[in-house]
Design a protein around this nucleic acid. Sequence first.
DNA 1: CTTGGTTCCTGCGTGC
DNA 2: TGCACGCAGGAACCAA
Length: 278
Amino acid sequence: MPELPEVETIRRLLGRQLAGKRVEAVTFGARRVTMYPRPAEFKRQLIGVTVLGVGRRGKYLTFDLSNSRKLVLHLGMSGQVRRFGQDAMHKHEHMRLRFSDGETVSFVDARRFGKVCLTDGGALPKPIKGMERMGPEPIATGYSAAFLAACLSGRSASVKNLLLDQRVACGVGNIYSDEALHRAGVRPSRRAGSLKPSEVSRLTAAMGRVLKDGIRWCGTTMKDGGYVLVDGTAGAFQNRLRVYGREGEKCRRRGCKGVIQRKRIGGRSTHFCSACQK
DNA sequence: CTTGGTTCCTGCGTGC
DNA sequence: TGCACGCAGGAACCAA
C-alpha cells in the first residue's frame, strides 16, 4: 500500500495538476467501496466547487475545496489515483472527477480497503475518524526523539508494531518501518520499552531520513496492481530498499556480511539483518 | 488501557 | 493448462 512517501508523491503531482480547477462532473463505479456521504449528496457537495490545493496527513490525501469542505481519500492497500482521460470506467474504478478544463482524476482500488469521504464541517465522518487520532508527522521538524521515547517507554509490544501505530509515527507502514529499523540498527522484534535512548535517537533520525529518501525517489512500486504514479508509471525507491523484499540477499550496510531474514511480527511480513540489527 | 488475532477484498505467483 | 493455496504496502474491530 501507499505509505507516507507514496501519498506525498501523489499529493505533489495532484497539487500541480488540479489547483484552481472547478469540478464539473462526478462519476461513481458500480462496485461498492467505503464512501461518505451517499452518492447523490456527494455529488451535490462537489459539483461546481474549486480545488484550492491538495494536502496530506499521514496516509490520507486531502483536497481543500472552495466550499470549505475537504475531499479525503485513503488508499488502503491497493488504492491508486490515476488519470484516465475519457476512457470508459475501469473495472475497479470507484470515482472519477472531471474538471471544467476537461482534466480528470480517478480513484481506483481493487481490494476496496480504501475510503472516499467528504468532511461535513465539524467532526470527521466515521470511516476517517482515524485521522483525528493521528500523531505528529515524522518528517516534520518538530518530530522529536523525546516524543518517540515517550511512545515506546514501558511498552511490551515489539518496536515494529508500535512504528505501525499511526499515533506514534503517522504515515509509516510495513515497508518503511522495516527500512527505518534497519538504518537504525535495531531489530524489529525488540520490546519497545527495551530501547536505549541512543537507539531511540537513531530510530527517530532513521525514520525521517528513509521517508524523505522515499519521497525523493517518488515512492516504492513493488508489483503490478500496487502503487504507481498518477500517469501509471512506477516509483524508483524499490531499487534502493535495504531489507524489504530482500530475503536471502546480502545486507547492504557497509562492511556487514549478514543475510536478510524474513519473519512474521504482529501478522506482518518483517525483514531485517540478523548481523547488524541488535 | 494494552495486546494479539481476525476480518474486509481481489489478484498474482507458486507448486502440484 | 488448471486449480488450490498463500500472500500482499492498512487499519478497524474484537476478545482476553
